[in-house]
C-alpha cells in the first residue's frame, strides 16, 4: 500500500495520496507546511538578501565615488569585482567555509561579493552620465563640490543606481537559494530537503516558484521606489 515506486515519503505528518504518489504539486501539503516551512524560509531569504545588498551598496557606492574622481582606481575596482563575480557561487561559498564555517557570515560574505560588480558598474555609469552642461552650470552658480554631489550628481544618477540595485537584488535572491548549502536558511533549504527526499516535487516546485515570485515582488518594489524618487522622469516631454 505504501509502495510507490521511486518515491520515499517525506516524513511530514499524515500524508495524502497526492504526496504518496509524488504528484506534481500537492496544494494541501503546501498549505499545511506554509507556516512551518515556507513562511519562515521567505523571511530568512529576505533578511539574507537585504543584508547583502545593503552592505554591497555601501561598498559599491564608496568605490564608485572614488572611481568617479580617480579613473585609474575605477579600473582597479572593476578588475577585482569582475574576478570575484566570475567565481562560481557554490565554489565561493565552499572556499569561505574553512575561514568562517557553515554560518550566515559565510553566506553574507559571498552574497555581498556578488553584488559589487553590478552595482559598481551601474553607479559609475550613472555618475559619469550626468551631463557636462549641468555640471558646468552647477559649478558656475557657486555650488560647492559636496553640494554638486548631493544635489545634482547623485539625484541624476538615481535611475542607474536603482537599476544596479535591482540587478544586484534579484541576483542575490537567486544566490541565497544556493547559500543553503553553507547556511541553513532561506528557500534553498526546502529544495535541498526535497532533493534528498527522492525529489519530492511539491516541495521543489513550491520553493523554486516562491523564490521567483519573491524576486519579482522585490523588483517591482524597487521599480516603484524609483518612480517615487524621480518625479522629473514621469512628466511628458515638451
Amino acid at each position: 500500500m505504501l509502495a510507490v515506486p521511486g518515491a520515499v515519503l517525506p516524513n511530514f505528518g499524515q500524508t495524502s495520496s497526492c504526496v504518496r504518489n509524488n504528484g506534481l504539486f500537492c496544494w494541501s501539503w503546501f498549505s499545511q507546511h506554509w507556516s512551518d516551512t515556507f513562511g519562515p524560509a521567505i523571511g530568512q531569504h529576505l533578511v539574507l538578501t537585504v543584508i547583502a545588498v545593503a552592505i554591497g551598496f555601501v561598498i559599491a557606492m564608496a568605490a564608485s565615488l572614488v572611481a568617479y574622481r580617480l579613473p585609474w582606481a575605477g579600473a582597479g575596482f572593476n578588475v577585482v569585482f569582475t574576478l570575484v563575480f566570475t567565481i562560481p557561487s557554490i565554489a565561493l561559498f565552499e572556499l569561505l567555509v574553512p575561514a568562517t564555517g557553515l554560518t550566515r557570515t559565510t553566506a553574507e560574505i559571498a552574497l555581498t561579493s556578488y553584488t559589487l560588480l553590478v552595482m559598481f558598474a551601474n553607479f559609475v555609469t550613472g555618475l559619469r552620465g550626468v551631463s557636462a552642461d549641468v555640471l558646468e552650470a552647477a559649478e558656475g552658480m557657486g555650488l560647492t563640490r559636496g553640494q554638486r554631489l548631493r544635489r545634482v550628481e547623485l539625484p541624476l544618477a538615481i535611475p542607474a543606481i536603482v537599476a544596479g540595485i535591482r540587478v544586484a537584488t534579484v541576483t542575490v535572491i537567486g544566490l541565497v537559494v544556493v547559500a543553503a548549502y553553507v547556511d541553513n536558511e532561506g528557500l534553498g533549504v526546502p529544495i535541498l530537503q526535497a532533493i534528498q527526499n527522492s525529489s519530492f516535487k511539491t516541495e521543489l516546485i513550491a520553493a523554486a516558484v516562491l523564490a521567483v515570485l519573491l524576486a519579482w515582488a522585490v523588483d517591482a518594489l524597487l521599480v516603484g521606489s524609483q518612480w517615487l524618487l524621480t518625479p522629473w522622469l514621469r512628466s511628458r516631454r515638451a
Partner: peptide, 15 residues
C-alpha cells in the same frame, strides 16, 4: 553666487 552665469547648453537641472 554673486555673478549670474548663462551657458549655451543652458544646463538646467533636469530633476
Amino acid at each position: 553666487r554673486e555673478i549670474g552665469y548663462v551657458i549655451q547648453q543652458i544646463g538646467l537641472f533636469p530633476h
